[in-house]
Simulated assay, not measured.
Amino acid sequence: MAPFGLVATDIDGTLINNERLLSQRTISTLAAVGVPVVLVTGRPLRWLEQLNEQLPVPLPAVCANGAVVYDPHTDEVLRADPLSSGLLTDVIRRLRDAVPDISLAVEVEDGRSFLHEPTWPLRWTDPRVRVIGSPDELTSVPAVKLLARSATADPDDFLDLVSTSLGGVAEATRSSSSALVEISAAGVTKAAGLAWLCEREGITADQVVAFGDMPNDIPMLTWAGHAVAMGNAHPAVRAVADEITETNDNDGVAVYLEKVFGL
Results as ranks from 00 to 15, higher is better:
residue 56 P to E: 14
residue 84 S to R: 05
residue 211 F to C: 04
residue 243 E to N: 12
residue 71 D to C: 11
residue 172 A to V: 04
residue 139 T to H: 08
residue 174 R to N: 04
residue 249 D to A: 13
residue 206 D to E: 15
residue 232 N to F: 11
residue 203 I to K: 02
residue 79 R to Q: 12
residue 148 A to Q: 00
residue 49 E to P: 00
residue 188 V to S: 05
residue 158 F to P: 00
residue 196 W to E: 10
residue 258 E to C: 10
residue 123 R to K: 11
residue 149 R to F: 14
residue 30 L to Q: 12
residue 96 R to H: 11
residue 175 S to E: 00
residue 217 D to H: 08
residue 163 S to L: 10
residue 150 S to D: 13
residue 45 L to N: 07
residue 121 P to F: 11
residue 240 V to C: 13
residue 193 G to P: 04
residue 67 A to Y: 03
residue 127 P to W: 03
residue 131 V to M: 15
residue 119 T to F: 05
residue 153 A to W: 11
residue 173 T to R: 01
residue 188 V to W: 02
residue 150 S to W: 10
residue 60 P to G: 05
residue 150 S to F: 13
residue 7 V to W: 00
residue 220 M to V: 01
residue 35 V to T: 09
residue 84 S to Q: 06
residue 176 S to H: 11
residue 102 I to C: 03
residue 113 S to V: 10
residue 252 G to D: 06
residue 236 A to F: 01
residue 159 L to A: 07
residue 206 D to L: 09
residue 181 V to E: 02
residue 5 G to D: 06
residue 123 R to I: 13
residue 260 V to N: 04
residue 82 P to A: 09
residue 89 T to P: 00
residue 28 S to M: 07
residue 102 I to A: 08
residue 72 P to G: 11
residue 108 V to M: 07
residue 145 K to G: 03
residue 104 L to F: 02
